[in-house]
């Protein structure tokens, strides 16, 4: 499917404003113009040199949420959480796009960077939406009481492969520094997500090709989650995939039958996954089918 599909999805809800300070930071002019005509533009009322400005990865995540908006509305989440909200662009977009269609939804956002939580609050406020914002390492302080209560989690993690020492640094470095293969923070986030998500919980996460997304899907599969790529996008610099994970009772029961089943059954799934990934990477922007 081409970009056009997203255009329809994106234009089906009210666009809030058109100022594009955020988009200007993007290096790719093509992406820039498509974005400004396509999705709700969240004004950055305030920035901070130590806070990550929304870029291709943030836009791709919001596009994935938009593409899945009808499902989200059907889902009527009680609680949504963004881990690592940075400027607040994503959680604000989510709260706007669900808006009055999900009147009983409560939003939380965390970030490890105290400047980021401040900017998140300002972005939320200036768009007339609310989320409870907590300065926290992933979801520390929240995770024991919120366990099993969150219906939707969104994460655009620090995914850039870097030396391990840079992980968890103060300020803006924490926004991208992902350690070996960009997986250090992701691999810490996954078990927390598993703990927080309710029995009907969904996770949307940004990954980079270098993160080995297929292996992430396998890790989550072992925890009982199915997955699919919602948005795939290659920019000049990176190849991004936004993956949706959801708890799947079938997987759990398959896994408990593991001993009996032929070893072929899993490699079949794996192969299909590879096919999907391969298929989708043949065009630069694509939506592919469920693969696990």
């Amino acid at each position: 499917m081409s970009m056009d599909h997203n255009v329809e999805v994106g234009s089906s809800y009210a666009v809030s404003s058109t100022v594009t300070k955020d988009v200007e930071g993007c290096r790719n002019p093509q992406v820039r113009s498509k974005i400004s005509s396509r999705i709700a533009q969240i004004r950055l009322v305030s920035g901070h040199p130590e806070v990550y400005e929304p870029c291709d990865d943030s836009f791709a995540l919001v596009d994935a949420l938009l593409a899945d908006r009808a499902n989200l509305i059907d889902h009527q989440p009680n609680m949504c959480l963004e881990i690592g909200s940075g400027s607040g662009y994503v959680i604000t977009s989510l709260a706007i796009m669900l808006g009055s269609e999900c009147p009983g939804t409560h939003y939380f956002a965390t970030d490890i960077n105290p400047h980021a939580v401040e900017v998140t609050c300002k972005t939320l406020n200036s768009h007339g939406v609310h989320a409870e914002v907590v300065c926290s390492n992933i979801a520390s302080g929240l995770q024991s009481r919120l366990a099993g209560m969150v219906d939707v989690i969104v994460v655009n993690p620090p995914y850039v492969p870097t030396p391990e020492e840079e992980v968890g640094s103060e300020g803006i470095t924490a926004a991208w520094a992902g350690g070996e293969n960009g997986r250090t923070v992701i691999d810490r986030i996954l078990p927390v997500v598993d703990m927080l998500l309710s029995s009907r919980g969904w996770l949307y996460m940004v990954t980079l090709a270098a993160n080995n997304p297929l292996q992430i899907c396998q890790v989550m599969r072992e925890k009982g989650y199915a997955s699919r790529i919602v948005v795939q996008r290659s920019t000049e610099e990176e190849s991004l995939r936004i993956i949706k994970f959801w708890r799947d009772a079938d997987i759990e029961s398959h896994d408990s039958n593991k001993v009996k089943s032929l070893s072929g059954s899993e490699s079949w799934l794996l192969q299909l996954s590879r096919m999907s990934l391969w298929r989708s990477s043949s065009s630069s922007n694509n939506r592919v089918n469920e693969f696990s």
Binding site: I112, P114, V117, E118, C121, V133, V134, C135, S136, N137, I138, S140, G141, L142, Q143, G168, R188, P191, V192
Partner: peptide, 22 residues
């Protein structure tokens, strides 16, 4: 004490309190 400033609680721990204990 965990401070609450401008409506935001700060739950970050120091290294020796178990910063990465998730």
């Amino acid at each position: 004490k965990f401070p609450v400033n401008k409506g935001v609680p700060n739950m970050l721990l120091h290294e020796d309190e178990g910063f990465w204990r998730l």
